[in-house]
Design a binder for these strands. Structure first.
Length: 214
DNA sequence: TGCCAGGCCGGGT
DNA sequence: ACCCGGCATGGC
């Protein structure tokens, strides 16, 4: 399995090159983006983030002290804005209560313990938690999303019904725990998924993995 | 025009 | 333990 996963990685890298996802922005901005992108196109998330950045609101303290209805209005372009405003508020309260509002304190907590605590926050599921840990905290947790499951199941590597932790384990138990690798790998999967593995489209002939996988 | 997008929760079986 | 409806905007 390790060989298959590395072959797949190399095939994707060859097809799409380095993605350098989320390296230039602040960890807090990455965290906000991780919530806003739930079941949402990234282009919509960018619009909402741009509003918050323009208004100089991208700090834990600023968003924390804001009324949820105002936050909701600001992030409107990202969709599901009422529920997402509440979820951001839950996350912000968590950071304030447990880490006195400091991301540095939060990210220097025990990684496995932090992950469990994040999952206990209402509105933070496994993918959002792992996105925060990988892309904001630079901790080696593999992010599994709809594209990951779809691509792997269409190529016969997992059952279509495999749950999140099964799929995550497939990567983390067979690959080195390397932040850079996980970062790039997940980004490549999303890139490939957007292009050729959309919902409702049968396994496509231009799939860059086709020459490498059965 | 309808379908889809980097999920998650709560209520029902 | 699953299964499903709800949540909402913007792009193609």
């Amino acid at each position: 399995m390790r060989r298959k996963l590395m072959t797949m990685y190399r095939a994707l890298f060859k097809a799409y090159g380095p993605q350098h996802w989320w390296p230039g922005d602040s960890p807090f901005e990455v965290m906000v983006g991780a919530v806003l992108t739930q079941n949402t196109a990234w282009t919509n998330v960018e619009k909402a983030i741009a509003v918050l950045r323009r208004e100089r609101l991208l700090t834990p303290a600023r968003l924390d002290s804001m009324r949820a209805v105002r936050l909701a209005a600001l992030i409107r372009p990202s969709g599901y804005y009422n529920i997402k405003a509440k979820r951001l508020k839950h996350l912000l309260r968590f950071i304030r209560d447990r880490y006195s509002g400091s991301l540095r304190k939060m990210f220097s907590d025990d990684p496995v313990g932090l992950r469990k605590k994040l999952l206990a926050v209402n509105g933070i599921g496994p993918e959002t938690a792992d996105s925060i840990l990988l892309y904001a905290a630079a901790l080696p947790f593999f992010v599994v999303d709809a594209y990951t499951k779809r691509i792997l199941s269409r190529h016969g590597l997992i059952s279509p019904a495999a749950d999140y932790h099964r799929v995550q384990g497939l990567f983390m138990d067979n690959l080195p725990r390397d932040t850079r690798l996980y970062n790039e790998y997940h980004a490549l999967i999303v890139q490939a998924g957007k292009e050729y593995c959309r919902k409702g489209v049968p396994l496509c002939e231009e799939c860059p993995l086709k020459p490498y996988l059965p």
